[in-house]
Simulated assay, not measured.
Amino acid sequence: MRRKNVNDYQAFIAVARAKSFTKAAAQQAEDAVKAGVSLTAVGQGMVMNPDWVKFVEGKTEDKIALNIAASDAEQLAIPQKLWRVIEETTGWFNIR
């Protein structure tokens, strides 16, 4: 967590590693903003599920992905360099 004053405005950003990217995770992000956090991030959730926002809003019937495989990279438009980092960083993503 980091706080910084910019033009008398205090930005507060919270980052946490979610174990799932479900509606509960969306509720946690929303609760954080209501509690005063300026920005929340859903990094892995968005990489594996580009339509994550539609999912948490109930606007899609698709199942949310909790893991990723090399065969998913092209469909998800993951750049090769990012995919290499994902593979090389043990424990960052759930790779199947």
Rank of each mutant, 00 (worst) to 15 (best):
D62R: 09
Q80I: 14
G43N: 14
A70M: 12
A26Y: 04
K81F: 09
W83T: 05
F12E: 04
E87N: 10
G43E: 13
Q27Y: 05
I68D: 01
A25H: 02
T22G: 02
M46L: 15
I64N: 01
A14P: 04
A11W: 14
A35C: 09
E57D: 13
A24D: 10
E88C: 05
K59W: 12
V85K: 08
L39K: 14
P50G: 00
K54S: 11
R84M: 14
K54I: 01
A69K: 15
W52G: 01
I78W: 05
W52I: 04
Q28S: 12
K54E: 15
K54M: 13
Q28R: 07
G58N: 08
K59L: 15
W83Q: 02
Q27E: 12
T40C: 13
A73K: 01
A73I: 05
A77S: 13
K19E: 11
S38Q: 06
L76H: 00
A70H: 07
T60S: 14
G58D: 08
V85S: 05
A69L: 05
G36E: 06
I78P: 02
A18T: 04
L82M: 15
A29R: 05
K59S: 10
I86R: 03
E61N: 15
S71A: 14
D62Q: 08
F55A: 01
E87G: 06
Q28Y: 08
G43C: 15
L82S: 10
A69M: 06
M46G: 09
L82G: 01
K54Y: 07
P79C: 10
L39Q: 15
A25T: 13
K23I: 00
W52E: 02
A16S: 12
A32Q: 10
V15R: 11
K19G: 14
A26F: 06
K23Y: 00
I68M: 07
P79R: 10
I64W: 02
A73D: 01
L39M: 15
T60Y: 04
D51L: 09
E57T: 03
E57G: 01
A65R: 02
W52A: 04
V53H: 01
W83K: 04
E61L: 13
L82V: 13
V37E: 03
T60Q: 07
E30Y: 10
L82E: 05
S71I: 10
F12C: 04
